[in-house]
Amino acid sequence: MTTAEFNICVDKFADNVYRFILKNIKDEDKAKDVVQDSFEKMWLKVDDIAFEKSRSYLFTTAYHTMIDMIRKDKKKSDFDEIEPYTQGYKQEYMGLKEIIESALEKLPEIQKNVVLLRDYEGYSYEEIGQITGLNETQVKVYIYRARLTMKNFIGSLEKIL
């Protein structure tokens, strides 16, 4: 990949990677850090990465960088004995978008990631597997479970509301 192609990658994929990470970690600064780290890592291997594979490489790198960050934060949180923040919801003001957001937050980390990669980026099961290190079947199962969980959560909330 040339320098020009690298810069094209920035234009084309920086927003997508940022959205994906931000949706997961809910922290703009940390999401920016992950994006910067990912592009820096890609730059270090710019001669070895084909332009066609750059998107996949970026998401894979960003995903693993984010997971490392989450683990570090979790360790720090455990050390500080701070109660993890559990996102609640304000029933009285909740629209469909907020309900879906809440449903997404209810998902385990890995299910949330595969659903985001599937819905946001339109990745195939195989590509998601490559990014997350899962096999294709595991990706299918996680997506299936995530949909059911979200559907049940949305249904239950809609009944309440």
């Binding site: 320098t3 690298f6 810069n7 920035v10 234009d11 920086a14 927003d15 997508n16 990677v17 940022y18 959205r19 931000l22 920016k32 994006v35 910067q36 592009f39 730059w43 469909l96 879906i100 449903a103 997404l104 659903v115 985001l116 819905d119 946001y120 995530a146 949909r147 979200m150 559907k151 949305i154």
Partner: peptide
């Protein structure tokens, strides 16, 4: 309804910082 749509208003502002010359 479980299918998510990306919020396209969210974008990475400082792309120029990422670019290499």
């Amino acid at each position: 309804k479980t299918y998510l749509k990306p919020d396209l208003t969210i974008s990475y502002k400082n792309k120029s910082e990422l670019k290499k010359f």
